[in-house]
């Protein structure tokens, strides 16, 4: 098994096929989307491939040390920041192909007009522990 991070972006990913902002959908379309996401996570829990799923607030601040004895420096939030992560799902699958398949399924969540969004999700493999036996 290998773990993968599925990243969903508020902004910064290439445009989805069905690219309509969520507040322009009908309330029923919003509900259908929410249900799809929940059912998807439930199914992965049953198949033993679900690890974690979290949503992030759009607010964010950059922070860095300013040296010993000084408070950290902050910057932002940046209204124009290109890349804003909306949330993630961590899955644990047998193969890379299975991870791709699941990412595709998640990307096809229904959007405006009840049609699949076909949004771009970022798939990132976790670095695992080094194997005891390498050959």
């Amino acid at each position: 098994m290998a773990k993968y991070l599925l990243l969903k972006h508020y902004r910064g990913a290439p445009a989805a096929v069905n690219d309509v902002p969520m507040d322009q959908w009908t309330p029923e379309e919003v509900s259908a989307h929410v249900k799809y996401m929940r059912d998807f996570a439930d199914r992965l829990q049953e198949s033993g491939e679900f690890v974690d799923s979290q949503a992030l607030s759009a607010e964010g601040t950059f922070v860095r040390s300013d040296g010993e004895g000084r408070p950290p420096v902050t910057d932002g939030p940046f209204a124009e920041t290109k890349d804003v992560i909306a949330g993630w799902m961590v899955i644990d699958t047998d193969t890379y192909e299975r991870a791709l398949e699941l990412a595709g399924e998640l990307s096809a969540a229904p959007g405006a007009g009840g049609r699949p969004i076909h949004e771009w999700l970022e798939l990132r493999p976790f670095m695992g522990a080094s194997h005891t036996i390498t050959e």
Binding site: Y10, D23, V30, S57
Partner: peptide, 26 residues
């Protein structure tokens, strides 16, 4: 409402606010 949604502190609240925006826009 659309502005408030991504600032919500929980997912149900975010979805609720998105639905409010969607309802008015419809």
């Amino acid at each position: 409402y659309a502005e408030a949604a991504p600032l919500a502190s929980s997912l149900p609240e975010r979805d609720h606010l998105t639905r409010q925006a969607a309802r008015l826009n419809a």
